[in-house]
Design a protein around this nucleic acid. Structure first.
Length: 565
RNA sequence: UGCCCGAUGGUGUAAUUGGCAACACGUCUGACUCUGGAUCAGAAGAGUCUAGGUUCGACCCCUAGUCGGGCAACCA
């Protein structure tokens, strides 16, 4: 029962590389020994399981080291961002179980400060207004990864002129794209990002928070580190593709920091999941082109999709923990995600019997009008969940797959002349089958042995198999949505020539069946989770109305099915 | 061809910082079971990208290479 052996209890978990850095910083007394992280989503899409990893990392670190973690919306591009996304992001983080308390920040809150610092940069001769348009600059000045760039003809404008032009940019006197404010760094740097990166661009667009107050907007690089500094962030954690930005992050900070405190950026490898797409852009495409029903389609790797699918916050946090944090590219097996939810739900989920592919079974020697209330265990893993009554009668439904006319050797279920136990009920024996004109089985006839009722201990014999069932007259009908992976290819981006990832979509990712469920389910509400015995974990979908709609979260492990595949 | 990052069983992550590789998932056995679930017991599977070097000793340090990823948005 107890997992930790006595000599094992002391075993401390090894630290990931970020924790090692933090512990070193703490030991050296850096930043007044504070740990302050932030989760900085751009509100331009829904959060997905990859963000969950980052959320768990950032909030988890703060928790572990008695620090704080801010929520900061990186909303510097009004064209792509929207309040719809702000709201969904907040909901998802809260649902995951993390609390930013009163520290809900927006990069847009800092626009004024950022603007003032930009003026300081100009006055220090570290920034200039460039009239080159995007195309011209890219083609004739930036250079390439192999060749150095060269200075813009506007690079050496006087401070006064720069100040004046920047002021006019702010006042809206120039059209979009006609001018940018650039940092004056090094056009020959081997790091392209250091070749006089744009700090501000003109966008006459209304922002979801600042409205029309601004028509110049800071770029990510300029906003991010300075925002970290404003908020007192100590460890600014982002994904690997930003490592090349770090010199710029540091350079920009150096221009304004006059304290001993200074934030530092660290990069870790983003999460990749097999059979899953993680790009926000592609997820948006799936939504827009109606490959899925929305951002919260249960097949989506979004947090809202996983939630609707029946995943619990605990299971996702467990998953994030198991996945680890490192710097090398990785592809996590979806099986680990599935393991995470099974692990959690096995301990928590109410058990029920439900038949998803019903075939009628009649117990010939059972009294016509009788109904028994049989006792069933709600969760064998948790006695405190108690027991319930399940109605039993002459006519039942069982799973089509649980009967075979001509069974193979190791088939333990029902077959002509064979015995099987009906879970929580009796041992029955198949005596005959009825078929329709096409030869499909209509009805299975059995006899039962009244001496073998569950719990009486009177059964004189053991049977190999136990199957689930539902009483025909008492069953509740439900639409059951059986979900499978959205993509057929382990790497959905690996496609044939000329095709895109949508060509890898699994046409059978959703299979809808009409199931029969024991009456217990009748009062269930959206989000309620169950284990249908021998079948899988399920939850009630929000689409339920008079008729229940049930989502399959994940099937149970099935060694019989595996053996036969 | 430039710069940056990385490389440990099938997949991830470790190895308390130089003392002959551990944990998890997955896979396979077996036991148990009124869920072919769960649980329990066990097994297979890497000699740490390659080649040199330092060292009594290298996954760890050095050198050179190989492979993989990233970088040339007025995106983040």
């Amino acid at each position: 029962m107890v997992k930790n052996s006595p000599d094992n209890t002391e075993k401390k978990k090894s630290l990931n590389f970020i924790q090692q850095i933090i512990e070193k910083d703490l030991a050296e007394g850096k930043n007044e020994k504070r740990v302050h992280t932030r989760f900085p989503p751009e509100p331009n899409g829904y959060l997905h399981i990859g963000h969950a990893k980052s959320i768990c990392l950032n909030f988890g670190l703060a928790e572990k080291y008695n620090g704080l973690c801010n929520l900061r919306f990186d909303d510097t591009n009004p064209l792509k961002e929207d309040v719809e996304y702000v709201d969904s992001i907040k909901e998802d983080i809260q649902w995951l179980g993390f609390d930013w308390e009163d520290r809900e920040y927006y990069a847009s809150d800092y626009f004024q400060q950022l603007y003032e610092w930009a003026i300081k940069l100009i006055m220090d001769g570290k920034a200039y207004v460039d009239d080159l348009d995007q195309e011209d600059f890219a083609k004739n000045y930036r250079g390439t990864v192999n060749t150095p760039g060269k200075p813009s003809p506007y690079r050496d404008r006087s401070i006064e002129e720069n100040l004046e032009l920047f002021e006019k940019m702010k006042k809206g006197e120039f059209p979009d794209g006609s001018k940018v404010l650039r940092a004056k760094i090094n056009m020959a740097s081997p790091n392209m990002l250091m070749r006089d990166p744009a700090l501000y661009r003109i966008k006459h667009a209304s922002h979801h928070r600042t409205g029309d107050k601004w028509c110049i907007y800071p770029m990510y690089d300029y906003a991010h580190g300075q925002s970290d500094y404003i908020e007192g962030i100590t460890h600014s954690i982002c994904t690997l593709e930003f490592d090349i930005h770090r010199p710029l992050y540091d350079w920009l900070l150096e221009q304004i920091v006059d304290t001993k405190y200074r934030p530092h950026q660290y990069e870790f490898a983003r999460l990749n999941l097999s059979y899953t797409i993680m790009s926000k852009r592609k997820l948006l495409q799936l939504v827009q082109e109606k490959y899925v029903s929305g951002w919260d389609d249960p097949r989506m790797p979004t947090i809202s999709g996983l939630r609707r699918r029946g995943y619990t916050p605990e299971s996702i946090r467990y998953f994030a923990d198991k996945v680890g944090v490192a710097k090398r590219d990785n592809v996590i097996d979806v099986a680990l995600l599935e393991h995470s939810i099974r692990e959690d739900l096995n301990k928590k989920a109410q058990r029920l019997m439900a038949v998803l592919d019903p075939v009628k079974l009649v117990i010939d020697n059972y009294p016509d009008s009788e109904t028994e209330e049989l006792e069933a265990v709600n969760n064998p893993e948790d006695e405190s969940m108690g027991k319930r009554k399940v109605p039993f009668s002459k006519e039942l439904y069982i799973e089509r797959k649980d009967f075979m006319e001509d069974p193979p050797r190791k088939f333990f279920r029902l077959a002509p002349d064979r015995e099987v136990r009906l879970r929580y009920a009796y041992i029955i024996k198949c005596v005959s089958v009825e078929k329709d004109d096409e030869g499909n089985i209509n009805t299975i006839h059995c006899t039962y042995d009244p001496e073998t009722k569950s719990g009486t201990g009177k059964a004189q014999r053991k049977v190999k198999g136990t199957i689930h069932w539902v009483s025909a007259d008492h069953a509740i009908d439900a639409e059951v949505r059986l979900y499978d992976r959205l993509f057929n290819n382990e790497d959905p981006n690996e496609t044939e020539e000329g095709k895109d990832f949508t060509s890898n979509i699994n046409p059978d990712s959703l299979n809808i069946v009409q199931g029969k469920i024991e009456p217990f389910i009748k009062d269930a509400e959206a989000g309620d989770k169950f284990q249908f015995e021998r079948t899988g974990y399920f939850c009630v979908d929000k689409d339920s109305s008079e008729k229940l709609v049930i989502n399959r979260t994940v099937p149970l492990r099935d060694s019989w099915a595996k053996k036969n595949q």
